[in-house]
Simulated scan of single mutants.
Amino acid sequence: MTSTMRGVFAVPTTPFSPTNTQDLDALRSGVDRVLEAGVDGILALGATGEALALTTQEREEQVRAVIEHVQGRVPVVVGCMAYDPRDVADLIDKARDWGASAAMVTPPYYGGISAEATVAALEPVFAASTLPLLFYNNPHSTGTDVLPAHLEPLAAHDSFWAVKETSGAASRVRELRAALPERVEIFVGADGLALEGFVQGATGWVAASAWLAPQECVRLWQLADQGEWAQAVRLWRKLATPLGLIEDSSAFISLIKGCLTQLGIEQGPVRPPLPTAAPEEIQAVLTALQDVQEVAHA
Protein backbone atom coordinates (compact mmCIF):
# COMPACT_ATOMS: atom_id res chain seq x y z
CA MET A 1 0.00 0.00 0.00
CA THR A 2 1.39 3.40 -0.99
CA SER A 3 0.24 6.14 1.34
CA THR A 4 -0.73 9.64 0.32
CA MET A 5 -2.04 10.44 3.81
CA ARG A 6 0.42 12.64 5.67
CA GLY A 7 0.62 16.12 7.18
CA VAL A 8 -1.55 17.61 9.94
CA PHE A 9 -4.57 15.58 11.03
CA ALA A 10 -6.79 17.58 13.38
CA VAL A 11 -8.61 15.77 16.20
CA PRO A 12 -12.11 17.17 16.82
CA THR A 13 -13.58 17.87 20.19
CA THR A 14 -17.14 16.78 20.86
CA PRO A 15 -19.26 19.90 21.42
CA PHE A 16 -22.09 19.32 23.88
CA SER A 17 -25.38 21.18 24.14
CA PRO A 18 -26.81 22.43 27.46
CA THR A 19 -28.79 19.16 27.64
CA ASN A 20 -25.57 17.09 27.43
CA THR A 21 -26.23 15.82 23.91
CA GLN A 22 -23.56 16.20 21.24
CA ASP A 23 -24.00 19.24 19.03
CA LEU A 24 -23.35 17.93 15.53
CA ASP A 25 -23.95 21.30 13.90
CA ALA A 26 -21.16 22.78 16.01
CA LEU A 27 -18.96 19.83 15.07
CA ARG A 28 -19.62 20.43 11.37
CA SER A 29 -18.71 24.09 11.79
CA GLY A 30 -15.47 23.01 13.44
CA VAL A 31 -14.68 20.73 10.50
CA ASP A 32 -15.13 23.64 8.10
CA ARG A 33 -12.92 25.86 10.25
CA VAL A 34 -9.94 23.48 10.28
CA LEU A 35 -10.31 22.57 6.62
CA GLU A 36 -10.23 26.26 5.70
CA ALA A 37 -7.00 26.49 7.70
CA GLY A 38 -5.46 23.79 5.51
CA VAL A 39 -5.33 20.64 7.64
CA ASP A 40 -4.57 17.47 5.70
CA GLY A 41 -6.98 15.14 7.50
CA ILE A 42 -9.41 14.60 10.37
CA LEU A 43 -9.15 11.94 13.07
CA ALA A 44 -12.57 11.30 14.58
CA LEU A 45 -13.20 9.47 17.86
CA GLY A 46 -9.84 10.25 19.40
CA ALA A 47 -9.27 10.97 23.07
CA THR A 48 -9.76 14.69 22.43
CA GLY A 49 -13.26 13.89 21.20
CA GLU A 50 -14.11 12.12 24.46
CA ALA A 51 -14.73 8.97 22.44
CA LEU A 52 -14.91 6.70 25.48
CA ALA A 53 -17.53 8.97 27.07
CA LEU A 54 -19.87 8.63 24.09
CA THR A 55 -22.51 5.97 23.64
CA THR A 56 -22.27 3.54 20.74
CA GLN A 57 -25.03 5.45 18.97
CA GLU A 58 -23.32 8.80 19.56
CA ARG A 59 -20.07 7.49 18.10
CA GLU A 60 -21.79 6.33 14.94
CA GLU A 61 -23.69 9.60 14.62
CA GLN A 62 -20.48 11.57 15.03
CA VAL A 63 -18.48 9.58 12.51
CA ARG A 64 -21.24 9.67 9.93
CA ALA A 65 -21.67 13.43 10.43
CA VAL A 66 -17.95 14.10 9.98
CA ILE A 67 -17.53 11.87 6.92
CA GLU A 68 -20.63 13.18 5.21
CA HIS A 69 -19.63 16.78 5.88
CA VAL A 70 -16.02 16.37 4.78
CA GLN A 71 -17.27 14.95 1.45
CA GLY A 72 -13.88 13.54 0.52
CA ARG A 73 -12.02 16.83 0.83
CA VAL A 74 -9.47 15.20 3.14
CA PRO A 75 -9.02 11.68 4.58
CA VAL A 76 -11.04 10.85 7.70
CA VAL A 77 -9.49 8.40 10.17
CA VAL A 78 -11.75 6.78 12.76
CA GLY A 79 -10.62 5.66 16.20
CA CYS A 80 -11.52 1.97 16.61
CA MET A 81 -10.61 1.35 20.23
CA ALA A 82 -11.69 -1.66 22.27
CA TYR A 83 -10.19 -4.18 24.67
CA ASP A 84 -11.03 -7.30 22.65
CA PRO A 85 -9.33 -7.44 19.20
CA ARG A 86 -12.50 -9.03 17.80
CA ASP A 87 -14.38 -5.89 18.77
CA VAL A 88 -11.64 -3.78 17.20
CA ALA A 89 -12.04 -5.69 13.92
CA ASP A 90 -15.79 -5.17 14.06
CA LEU A 91 -15.35 -1.43 14.61
CA ILE A 92 -12.98 -1.24 11.64
CA ASP A 93 -15.57 -2.91 9.42
CA LYS A 94 -18.19 -0.42 10.58
CA ALA A 95 -15.83 2.51 9.93
CA ARG A 96 -15.22 1.19 6.42
CA ASP A 97 -18.96 0.93 5.78
CA TRP A 98 -19.45 4.52 7.00
CA GLY A 99 -16.87 5.73 4.48
CA ALA A 100 -13.74 6.16 6.60
CA SER A 101 -10.37 6.47 4.86
CA ALA A 102 -8.47 4.63 7.61
CA ALA A 103 -8.79 3.46 11.22
CA MET A 104 -6.74 4.00 14.37
CA VAL A 105 -6.13 1.12 16.80
CA THR A 106 -4.46 0.96 20.20
CA PRO A 107 -3.12 -1.76 22.50
CA PRO A 108 -5.84 -3.27 24.68
CA TYR A 109 -6.45 -1.00 27.67
CA TYR A 110 -5.82 -1.94 31.25
CA GLY A 111 -3.69 -4.72 32.66
CA GLY A 112 -0.41 -3.48 31.20
CA ILE A 113 0.03 -6.43 28.85
CA SER A 114 3.44 -6.85 27.26
CA ALA A 115 4.31 -5.30 23.92
CA GLU A 116 4.76 -8.78 22.47
CA ALA A 117 1.28 -9.82 23.64
CA THR A 118 -0.15 -6.61 22.19
CA VAL A 119 1.29 -7.31 18.77
CA ALA A 120 0.14 -10.94 18.89
CA ALA A 121 -3.40 -9.81 19.75
CA LEU A 122 -3.51 -7.21 16.99
CA GLU A 123 -1.82 -9.19 14.22
CA PRO A 124 -5.09 -10.88 13.10
CA VAL A 125 -6.70 -7.43 13.02
CA PHE A 126 -3.98 -6.11 10.70
CA ALA A 127 -4.10 -9.27 8.58
CA ALA A 128 -7.85 -8.98 7.98
CA SER A 129 -8.33 -5.22 7.82
CA THR A 130 -9.79 -3.72 4.67
CA LEU A 131 -8.79 -0.22 5.81
CA PRO A 132 -5.32 1.26 6.26
CA LEU A 133 -4.45 1.18 9.96
CA LEU A 134 -2.78 3.71 12.23
CA PHE A 135 -1.19 2.13 15.31
CA TYR A 136 -1.45 4.49 18.29
CA ASN A 137 1.35 4.01 20.80
CA ASN A 138 0.18 5.74 23.98
CA PRO A 139 1.78 4.03 26.99
CA HIS A 140 0.48 6.68 29.40
CA SER A 141 -3.12 5.60 28.70
CA THR A 142 -2.78 1.92 27.75
CA GLY A 143 0.01 0.89 30.11
CA THR A 144 2.01 -0.65 27.25
CA ASP A 145 4.92 0.94 25.42
CA VAL A 146 5.30 -0.75 22.05
CA LEU A 147 8.85 -0.22 20.80
CA PRO A 148 9.88 0.01 17.14
CA ALA A 149 11.26 -3.54 17.07
CA HIS A 150 7.94 -4.88 18.35
CA LEU A 151 6.09 -3.33 15.41
CA GLU A 152 8.11 -5.05 12.70
CA PRO A 153 5.75 -8.09 12.44
CA LEU A 154 2.77 -5.77 11.96
CA ALA A 155 4.65 -3.88 9.25
CA ALA A 156 4.61 -7.05 7.16
CA HIS A 157 0.92 -6.41 6.53
CA ASP A 158 -0.09 -4.05 3.73
CA SER A 159 -2.75 -2.59 6.02
CA PHE A 160 -0.08 -1.03 8.27
CA TRP A 161 -0.29 2.57 7.13
CA ALA A 162 1.16 4.61 10.02
CA VAL A 163 2.21 4.98 13.66
CA LYS A 164 1.00 7.72 15.98
CA GLU A 165 3.84 8.02 18.51
CA THR A 166 3.00 9.53 21.89
CA SER A 167 5.46 7.96 24.31
CA GLY A 168 7.41 11.20 24.70
CA ALA A 169 10.74 9.37 24.29
CA ALA A 170 13.17 11.87 22.80
CA SER A 171 14.58 9.67 20.04
CA ARG A 172 11.56 7.46 19.36
CA VAL A 173 10.57 8.93 15.99
CA ARG A 174 14.10 8.44 14.68
CA GLU A 175 14.08 4.85 15.94
CA LEU A 176 10.72 4.17 14.30
CA ARG A 177 11.95 5.61 11.03
CA ALA A 178 14.99 3.34 11.13
CA ALA A 179 13.04 0.19 12.04
CA LEU A 180 9.99 0.43 9.78
CA PRO A 181 9.63 0.39 5.99
CA GLU A 182 9.69 3.78 4.29
CA ARG A 183 6.06 3.34 3.22
CA VAL A 184 4.93 3.50 6.87
CA GLU A 185 4.12 7.07 7.89
CA ILE A 186 5.27 8.27 11.31
CA PHE A 187 2.93 10.77 12.99
CA VAL A 188 3.86 12.84 16.01
CA GLY A 189 1.17 12.35 18.64
CA ALA A 190 2.62 14.45 21.48
CA ASP A 191 1.84 18.05 20.53
CA GLY A 192 4.59 19.44 22.74
CA LEU A 193 7.24 17.54 20.72
CA ALA A 194 6.02 18.28 17.21
CA LEU A 195 9.07 20.00 15.74
CA GLU A 196 11.43 17.51 17.38
CA GLY A 197 9.48 14.75 15.66
CA PHE A 198 9.62 16.46 12.27
CA VAL A 199 13.39 16.87 12.57
CA GLN A 200 13.69 13.11 13.17
CA GLY A 201 11.68 12.23 10.09
CA ALA A 202 8.03 12.27 11.12
CA THR A 203 5.80 12.66 8.09
CA GLY A 204 2.74 13.95 9.89
CA TRP A 205 1.13 15.14 13.08
CA VAL A 206 -2.08 13.91 14.72
CA ALA A 207 -2.72 17.14 16.56
CA ALA A 208 -5.29 17.78 19.25
CA SER A 209 -4.04 21.37 19.28
CA ALA A 210 -4.90 21.76 15.60
CA TRP A 211 -8.56 21.91 16.58
CA LEU A 212 -7.72 25.05 18.56
CA ALA A 213 -4.92 26.59 16.47
CA PRO A 214 -5.14 24.98 13.01
CA GLN A 215 -3.40 27.71 11.01
CA GLU A 216 -0.41 27.78 13.33
CA CYS A 217 -0.07 23.98 13.40
CA VAL A 218 -0.37 23.75 9.62
CA ARG A 219 2.21 26.48 9.16
CA LEU A 220 4.71 24.68 11.39
CA TRP A 221 4.28 21.47 9.43
CA GLN A 222 4.60 23.25 6.08
CA LEU A 223 7.83 24.96 7.10
CA ALA A 224 9.30 21.67 8.33
CA ASP A 225 8.15 19.74 5.28
CA GLN A 226 9.74 22.35 3.00
CA GLY A 227 12.99 22.31 4.95
CA GLU A 228 12.57 25.90 6.11
CA TRP A 229 14.07 25.04 9.47
CA ALA A 230 15.05 28.51 10.63
CA GLN A 231 11.50 29.78 10.20
CA ALA A 232 10.11 26.58 11.73
CA VAL A 233 12.28 27.03 14.83
CA ARG A 234 11.24 30.67 15.12
CA LEU A 235 7.57 29.70 15.05
CA TRP A 236 8.10 26.73 17.37
CA ARG A 237 9.72 28.87 20.04
CA LYS A 238 6.35 30.58 20.39
CA LEU A 239 3.99 27.71 19.57
CA ALA A 240 5.64 25.26 21.97
CA THR A 241 4.46 27.31 24.96
CA PRO A 242 0.66 26.99 24.51
CA LEU A 243 0.99 23.46 23.14
CA GLY A 244 3.08 22.48 26.14
CA LEU A 245 0.50 23.95 28.50
CA ILE A 246 -2.17 21.84 26.81
CA GLU A 247 -0.05 18.69 26.61
CA ASP A 248 0.97 18.82 30.28
CA SER A 249 -2.53 19.40 31.66
CA SER A 250 -4.63 16.51 32.95
CA ALA A 251 -7.61 18.62 31.86
CA PHE A 252 -6.29 19.07 28.31
CA ILE A 253 -9.64 18.28 26.66
CA SER A 254 -11.44 20.83 28.80
CA LEU A 255 -8.59 23.26 28.19
CA ILE A 256 -9.03 23.08 24.41
CA LYS A 257 -12.81 23.33 24.70
CA GLY A 258 -12.59 26.21 27.16
CA CYS A 259 -10.23 28.18 24.91
CA LEU A 260 -12.51 27.68 21.91
CA THR A 261 -15.53 28.78 23.91
CA GLN A 262 -13.68 31.92 25.03
CA LEU A 263 -12.95 32.61 21.36
CA GLY A 264 -16.67 32.46 20.60
CA ILE A 265 -16.74 28.85 19.34
CA GLU A 266 -19.08 27.27 21.91
CA GLN A 267 -18.08 23.78 22.99
CA GLY A 268 -19.99 23.04 26.18
CA PRO A 269 -18.40 21.14 29.07
CA VAL A 270 -16.54 17.85 29.16
CA ARG A 271 -18.41 14.80 30.38
CA PRO A 272 -17.60 13.56 33.88
CA PRO A 273 -15.37 12.12 35.17
CA LEU A 274 -13.04 14.17 32.96
CA PRO A 275 -11.54 17.14 34.85
CA THR A 276 -12.47 20.72 34.06
CA ALA A 277 -9.72 23.25 33.36
CA ALA A 278 -9.45 26.24 35.68
CA PRO A 279 -10.15 29.69 34.20
CA GLU A 280 -6.55 30.75 34.78
CA GLU A 281 -5.30 27.75 32.77
CA ILE A 282 -7.51 28.74 29.86
CA GLN A 283 -6.33 32.32 29.99
CA ALA A 284 -2.68 31.28 30.06
CA VAL A 285 -3.11 29.31 26.82
CA LEU A 286 -5.04 32.11 25.12
CA THR A 287 -2.38 34.66 26.09
CA ALA A 288 0.39 32.42 24.74
CA LEU A 289 -1.50 31.90 21.47
CA GLN A 290 -1.64 35.65 20.88
CA ASP A 291 2.16 35.70 20.72
CA VAL A 292 2.16 32.75 18.30
CA GLN A 293 -0.18 34.42 15.82
CA GLU A 294 2.15 37.37 15.36
CA VAL A 295 4.93 35.01 14.22
CA ALA A 296 2.79 32.53 12.27
CA HIS A 297 1.17 35.22 10.15
CA ALA A 298 4.31 37.27 9.59
Rank of each mutant, 00 (worst) to 15 (best):
E123C: 02
Q267D: 09
R59N: 09
E196A: 14
R28W: 11
I113K: 04
L195A: 12
L220P: 03
F16K: 00
M1S: 10
K238Y: 06
A53R: 12
R6N: 10
S167W: 04
A100T: 06
T241Y: 02
V11K: 03
T276Q: 14
A179S: 15
S250W: 06
L151E: 09
P75M: 03
A117N: 12
R237N: 15
S254E: 14
D93R: 14
Q71W: 00
R237G: 15
Q290V: 03
A224P: 08
L263Y: 09
R86W: 09
A178P: 03
R86N: 13
R271N: 06
K238F: 01
P214E: 15
G192V: 07
C217G: 13
Q226K: 13
T2V: 08
Q283V: 02
M104H: 03
P242K: 14
P272Q: 12
W211R: 10
E58A: 02
G168V: 11
F16A: 01
R237C: 14
A100S: 07
T142I: 00
V105N: 05
K257I: 09
L220F: 00
L91V: 05
P148D: 09
A120H: 11
L27I: 04
A44Y: 00
R64N: 11
E280F: 04
V292C: 13
R64A: 13
L274Q: 12
E123N: 01
D97E: 15
P107V: 01
T261P: 04
T55L: 01
A89Y: 02
R96W: 02
A155S: 05
D32Y: 06
R183C: 01
P214T: 13
G41C: 04
A213V: 12
R172Q: 11
K164T: 06
L180A: 07
I265L: 04
V206H: 01
A284N: 06
E182Q: 08
V218K: 10
L180I: 02
E50L: 02
K238L: 04
H157A: 02
L151F: 02
I113G: 06
T241E: 14
C80R: 06
Y83C: 08
M104P: 00
T55M: 00
L133R: 01
D84I: 09
Q71M: 05
V199I: 10
V11T: 10
A162L: 03
A208T: 13
M81E: 09
D158Y: 02
L243Y: 11
E61N: 10
V270M: 01
Y83A: 13
S141A: 11
D145V: 09
R64H: 12
D145P: 08
A207M: 08
Q290H: 04
G264Y: 05
W98F: 14
E294Y: 10
S3V: 05
L235A: 15
A169W: 12
Y83S: 12
I253L: 08
W161N: 00
P279G: 01
T48S: 15
V70G: 03
E123K: 07
I67D: 08
G264L: 10
W211I: 11
V285H: 03
D23A: 04
P15V: 09
T287Q: 06
R6Q: 13
E116V: 12
S29Q: 15
A117R: 11
G189M: 05
L260C: 01
D40G: 00
G30C: 04
L147D: 08
G30A: 07
P181N: 05
